[in-house]
Design a protein around this nucleic acid. Structure first.
Length: 327
DNA sequence: AACTGCTTCAACCGCTTCTGC
DNA sequence: CGCAGAAGCGGTTGAAGCAGT
């Protein structure tokens, strides 16, 4: 395939391992430990390269390897962790004793990814696959527009319509923010800042979505590179109707929205799950989505492990954060 | 039985990160 | 700090197995 083979240039064996080779490898490692993988094959009497031996041991022969189907619990853990870490298979594997990164990767690529796509969830961002028109189509029934149009004066209808459009725009931009975060991995990224500014420009009728201090300094240090002024002043304020359900009431909590009034319950491992039942008019994927554990948000290389890069001040004072951090 | 298309997963490749000097 | 070798990692491949015809 155009790639230069790493093993056969010295006449070393490639391809599937024979039971005899397995026996030799297991016997040697049980007696001496693997030590240096480079020297192991010679010492163990194997005509393989060290890399091949290491792979065979870690992915197949290790005694603590768990074989067989993934349980629903394991599946849920993989989904949650993938929404946090992306394709960091070894990192995900650390949370699943007995499972190898390779096994998890295969399981993801052959099954979970397909499942998410069938559920209309983007496997990369773990967000509902959003196109603006689709969002509108989902939100308009939410507002019972037709019924209202039959009995409300046009001024009220106009306000309702404005709210629906605002909701759709809000949801779309929230999608952009979440996509940017998921794609960036490292939050020290221009896309994040742009998306946050967009989001901050959207009036949220149930309070501030993002902590103002976070808007001023979302990445702790990188922001001074940009003139990232929130656009709030440019957006006219509007007052929502109290009886209209807003889609963000059913979105997982973000930042300082995590509180006791939230529509989400914290699970024992620190993640959040929606309080049921969700309104039937909402797409089911909104309710089934998981939210990242703030403690796990610390994935960037610039992070020292004590402070998540993106929600620093926001969570440090929050009992939920200390609880999540201790897990 | 024979063929085809699809799925699974072990193994490989090459790049990145880590470690020791 | 810089370098080289070792180890780790994630993407990809292809053989084997399975299901459908």
């Amino acid at each position: 395939m155009g790639r230069s083979p790493c093993c056969d240039e010295n006449g070393l064996r490639k391809g599937p391992w024979t039971p005899e080779e397995d026996k030799k490898l297991v016997k040697y490692i049980q007696k001496h430990g693997h030590g240096s993988w480079i020297t192991l094959p010679k010492l163990a009497g194997l005509n393989r390269c060290g890399k091949s031996c290491r792979l065979r041991w870690t992915n197949y022969l290790r005694p603590d390897i768990k074989r067989g189907k993934f349980s629903p619990e394991e599946e849920q853990i993989i989904l949650n962790l993938h929404s946090i870490h992306g394709n960091k298979w070894s990192r995900i594997a650390r949370h699943l004793p007995g499972r190898t990164d390779n096994e998890i990767k295969n399981f993801w690529n052959t099954q979970l990814k397909k499942k998410l796509i069938e559920m209309d969830i983007d496997p990369m961002t773990h967000c509902p696959r959003t196109d603006f028109l689709l969002t509108m189509a989902q939100l308009i029934p939410l507002a019972n527009l037709k019924e209202l149009m039959d009995r409300e004066p046009w001024e009220k209808q106009a306000i309702r319509l404005q709210e629906v459009i605002q909701s759709a725009k809000f949801q779309y931009i929230q999608y952009l923010v979440q996509s940017a975060m998921a794609m960036a991995g490292n939050s020290n990224n221009i896309a994040d800042i742009v998306a946050i500014n967009l989001l901050s420009s959207m009036p949220s009728p149930r309070g501030t979505l993002l902590n103002p201090s976070q808007l001023e300094n979302p990445t702790q240090g990188s922001l001074e590179l940009l003139d990232a002024q929130p656009l709030n002043d440019q957006i006219p304020h509007y007052t929502p109707s109290p009886d209209l359900p807003y889609p963000w009431d059913f979105m997982p909590p973000m930042g300082n929205e995590i509180n006791q009034d939230s529509n989400f319950t914290q699970l024992s491992h620190g993640d959040y799950t929606p309080k049921s039942p969700l309104p039937p008019s909402l797409p089911p994927t909104l309710g089934e989505r998981s939210i990242i554990n703030p403690a796990d948000a610390c994935s960037s290389s610039s992070c020292d492990g004590s402070t998540p890069p993106f929600w620093p001040d926001l969570f440090l004072d929050d009992p939920l954060f200390s609880q999540a951090s201790s897990i």
